[in-house]
Design a protein around this nucleic acid. Structure first.
Lengths: 202, 202, 202, 202
DNA sequence: CATGAATGAGTGTTCATTCAT
DNA sequence: TATGAATGAACACTCATTCAT
C-alpha cells in the first residue's frame, strides 16, 4: 500500500480549484494547466482523478447542483405556505454568495445546446427544483394563501421562469439588479398570486 | 473592372454560415476553418471580410439582435393595449424560426460573464426590448386594460424575465416546452395583470 | 495598344514605395500588400511589374546601389589626392539623407548570408567602391599626399572597413555617432596615413 | 520523481539547434518548427522552455554575446600593452570557429533597426567590448607602446570599427578574406598607431 | 492595364493528453 | 502517487500568389 491519500477529498480539492479557475478565467479560458496550478499540484496529477477535462467540468457543475439542492432543503425546512414558496424562489436568486456561483452556472447554460449529457443533467436539476416549487404552490393554494384560479403547475412554471429570467438580467448588468430589486420583483409577482388579490373588496 | 462581388452580400453569406456552424458545433466548437468550410470558401477568405474571429462572431450576434428588433417592430405596429404587450412578449419566445436563433443566443449568454463588450452589447439590446415592454404596459394601463396597482416598470421587468426564463427552460428540454405551452404560460401570467383581476366584480 | 503607361516609370514608383515601406516597417515587416498600399495601387498590380516579392526587394536594393555610385562619382569628380580619398569615404557615411538609406541597407546585410545572389550583388557593389578607394589612395600616394610605406590595397581595405564599421556603430546607437564624430574619426584615421606622419622628426 | 532532465541543459540544446537552423536557413527562414526538428523534438516542446519565438532567438544571441565575452577575457588575461590590444581585436575577427557565429550575428545586425530591445542589447555588448579596447589602448599608450598623439577613445573607436567592417567584408566574400589577410590588415592598421611611427630613428 | 476576390500553404502559439520516472 | 517532460493536433491568423473580370 503506497502513500495514504483520501481519494475523494483530493477530488473535492481539485473541483474547488476548478470552480475558482472558472470564476477567474471564464469557462473558455479555463485550462487543465490552470486548474492544476490553482490547486497547487502538477499538471499531470489531474489524470489520476479524472479521465479527461470534461469530467472535471462536469464534476464541478455537479457539485454546484448538489450544493444548490442542499441549500434549498435547508431554507424551506421550517417554512410553509406562501412563505415557503417565497423562500425557495429567493434561494435561487443571484444574491450574496450565490451570485458568484450564478456566474459560473450561466456560463454553463450555453453548453447545454451541444452537450446532450450536460443538458440532461441540468434539466434534471431544474426539474427537481421546479417540482419542489409546484408542490409548495399546491400546498399554499390548499391552505388558501395562494389563488386557486390557476393550475399550480402553471404558476410554478411562471415563478421559476421569472427567477431564471431575473438571473439572466442580473448577469447582463449586475449593478442595475441589486438584491433588493430582485427580491422586490419576486414579491411583486407573488402578490399577483394571492387569493382575491387586488382589493378583495368589502 | 474586377470580379463583380457584392461585398456586403458576401459578408452576410459568411455570417449565415457562421450561424449554421455555431448551431452545429456550439460556440466553443466553432472554428474559423469550419465556418469557411460551411460557407464553401477557403479558410483565408475570412480575413478578407473580417479582421478576426471575434469580429465574425460579433457580427453574427449583431445580426440576430437587428433581426429581433425588426421583427418586434413589425409585429406590434398594428396592435395596442394589452394585445400589443402580449404580442411583443410572444415575439421573443423560441417559437418557429426564432427557436433556432434562440439556441445560438443562449450559447452567447455565457460569454457575457467574461467579455465586457459582449455583455454591454447584449444589455443594450435587452434594455431596448424591456423599455418597449414598459412603454406598452404603461399604455395598456392607461387605457384600462392592465392593472394600475403595480408600477409599469416592475410589471414589464417581471414579464420580460418570465419570457427569458421560459427560453432557458425550452433550451433545457425543447420537447417539454412546445409553442402552445410557452404561449399559455405567458397568457396565464398576463391574466394576472388584468384590472380588478380575480373577483373584484360582484 | 491599350492604355499608355510608362512601364519603367511605374516600376520606379513602386520601387520608391518599397523603399518607404521598408523604412517604415522593416525588412521583415514589409509585405506586398503594404507596398501596394504605400504606392496607392491595388495589391494585384505588383504582379504586372515584378515576377515575385524577391524581385521587388532586389530592385529596391539595386536602386540604392546605383544611387550610391552616382553620388560617389559626382562628389569626387573635381577632387584629387588625399582630399578625394577623404571625400569618397565621407560619401559612404550615414550622414544627412544617406542615413535613412543606410538603415535599409544594413537590414539587407543579413540576407547576404543565405541569399547567394544578393550576396554576390552586394559584393560587386562593394568591390567597385573599394577599388575606387584603392585607385584614389594610389594616386594620393603617388603625389606624396599619402604614405607609401603600406600597400595602397591594404590602406584602402582598412579605410573602407573603418567606414563600414562606423556605419554599424551608428546603427547601434545613432545618437552617440553624430555626423561630426563620424567625420572626425575618419579624419583621425586619415592622418595616420599622411607621409612621415606625426613628427617626421627634425 | 519525474523524468530526470536538466532543464538548463535542455535549453542549451535547443539554443544550439537554433544556431544551426539560423545558419542553415537564415534568420527569416528560421521557424519554430524547423528549430524543433533540428533539435529532434516535437514542435510543441519549445513552449515548455521558451515563452515565444523571440525569446528563443534572444537567448541564442545572448549566448553568443556571453561566449564572445568569455573568450575575450580568456585571451587577454596574460597579455599587456600593444599585444593585448592586438589580441582583443583578433578575437573579434571571423576566424576559425568564430566564423560560423559571425554569420549568425551579422544576420542579427539588421534586426537592430526595427527591434529596439535587440538594438539596445547589441549596443551594450558592443560598448563593453569597445571600452575594453579603449582601456587597453590607454594602457599601451601609457607604457609607450602606442602613440599618444591621438585620443585613446578615438583610436579605440577606429580599431573597433575596422574589425567590424572587416567582418562585414568577410561575409560579402569569405574566400577573399582568409584569416591571414584579416589579421594582416589589422596588424597594418596597428602599425600606424605605434609611437613616432614612420621614421622613428633619427 | 488594373482590380480585388480568392486561394492555400505556412506561421507562432495553445493545450489536453500520455508516460517514463 | 505524483511529477513534469514530451507529444501532436488544433487553433487563429498572415501573406505571396493567382486569376476572372
Amino acid at each position: 500500500m503506497p502513500k495514504v491519500v483520501d481519494h475523494d477529498a483530493r477530488r473535492e480539492e481539485l473541483i474547488a480549484a476548478t470552480w475558482r479557475t472558472i470564476r477567474r478565467l471564464g469557462l473558455a479560458g479555463t485550462t487543465t494547466r490552470e486548474i492544476a496550478k490553482e490547486a497547487g499540484y502538477a499538471h499531470g496529477l489531474l489524470a489520476y482523478y479524472f479521465p479527461d477535462k470534461d469530467a472535471i467540468l462536469d464534476a464541478a457543475l455537479e457539485r454546484a447542483y448538489v450544493a444548490a439542492r442542499e441549500q434549498l432543503t435547508a431554507r424551506i425546512s421550517d417554512r410553509s405556505g406562501l412563505d415557503a414558496v417565497r423562500e425557495v424562489l429567493l434561494t435561487a436568486l443571484p444574491v450574496g454568495d450565490a451570485a458568484i456561483e450564478t456566474q459560473v452556472l450561466v456560463m454553463a447554460w450555453g453548453t447545454m445546446v451541444t452537450s446532450e449529457s450536460r443538458r440532461a443533467r441540468r434539466y434534471a436539476t431544474f426539474r427537481e427544483w421546479r417540482d419542489t416549487v409546484r408542490l409548495l404552490v399546491r400546498i399554499a393554494a390548499a391552505v388558501g394563501e395562494m389563488t386557486g384560479e390557476q393550475e399550480p403547475e402553471e404558476i410554478a412554471e411562471a415563478l421559476v421562469a421569472l427567477v431564471d429570467g431575473l438571473t439572466l438580467h442580473w448577469v447582463m448588468n449586475p449593478a442595475e439588479y441589486p438584491a433588493s430589486r430582485l427580491i422586490a420583483t419576486v414579491d411583486g409577482a407573488l402578490d399577483r398570486y394571492r387569493p382575491h388579490h387586488p382589493s378583495s373588496g368589502t
